[in-house]
Write a protein that binds this DNA or RNA. Structure first.
Lengths: 146, 146
DNA sequence: TTAAGTGCAAAGGTTTTGCGAAACT
DNA sequence: AGTTTCGCAAAACCTTTGCACTTAA
């Protein structure tokens, strides 16, 4: 498991190699994504960025996020209408746990077995490139407060 | 596996028992959902409904879909920004296969093992209520045309 | 009869686009 | 120096809401 510093460097390298400019705004955004395991929304990232760059805009945040998604460095998660979150903590496909009460999102300690993916591919005729697993439930904190 | 006619009756019964009125618009929408395994969008459902009810509105479609989701008879899928689809073909949780080129969505011939779900629950402390599995790739048709 | 549902139109909220100004390489 | 990128504002888009009319039970 790579640490956050390495993750930051990885993403920056990828951007550079792909010919994208390393502007301060982008570097700050990448830092936020690599550092946090909070799976933030675009609005949350924007709010944090504003502390360093008071004049930055949501448009810039979205543009950079799209670049990172294209490069495969960030996953865009669609948890519902107006609940899009971005996961830059780990390049590899990994399941998420989502609390239906507080909307916390954390990485799940599991992987889908390769054999299951193969089975589905063979049975369906699809060429499977990636997958997405989400577990919905109550986080430990919200279970208490029920 | 229940057939489409049974599925239609099931959903209608659930609505009735829950005290919802069985209007012609609702029955027609339920019919579309039960009959098709196409995982349609709200707009697609609206377009089909208009053939029978030229004055119907998207608002009515959304309202009915929300009722059905609350009752657990329909699953709302969030595949991306402005790519929400509705699955009324099967009450039980089941994975989906999504073609990244033509955006076709079909049910995947597999289930997540209960033991995997249990493992995640124990390891995380979450009380898991449901889950969502999506495989992304190329459908047989789109593989040909590449 | 009457409370729930329909449908129109307008509002709401997130994401995208256009374009002149700024800045990275 | 030349493009990419920024950031503002406006547009676009889907979804939701308000409200008077209609209708299922």
């Amino acid at each position: 498991m790579t640490n956050n510093e390495d993750r930051y460097e990885d993403i920056v390298s990828t951007m550079q190699e792909a010919g994208y400019r390393l502007t301060p705004q982008r570097l700050a955004l990448v830092h936020l994504l690599a550092e946090s395991d909070q799976h933030p929304t675009a609005a949350q990232l924007y709010a944090e960025l504003q502390q360093q760059f008071p004049t930055t805009s949501l448009a810039t945040v979205y543009k950079t996020l799209h670049v990172l998604c294209e490069l495969g460095e960030v996953q865009e998660m669609h948890l519902g209408q107006d609940e899009h979150r971005y996961d830059g903590s780990d390049r590899t496909t990994h399941p998420h746990l989502i609390c239906i009460q507080c909307h916390e999102v954390v990485d799940a300690p599991a992987r889908l077995s390769a054999s299951l993916v193969d089975e589905v591919a063979v049975a369906s005729g699809y060429r499977i490139l990636t997958h997405n697993v989400e577990f919905f439930g109550l986080c430990p904190v919200c279970q208490e407060s029920t």
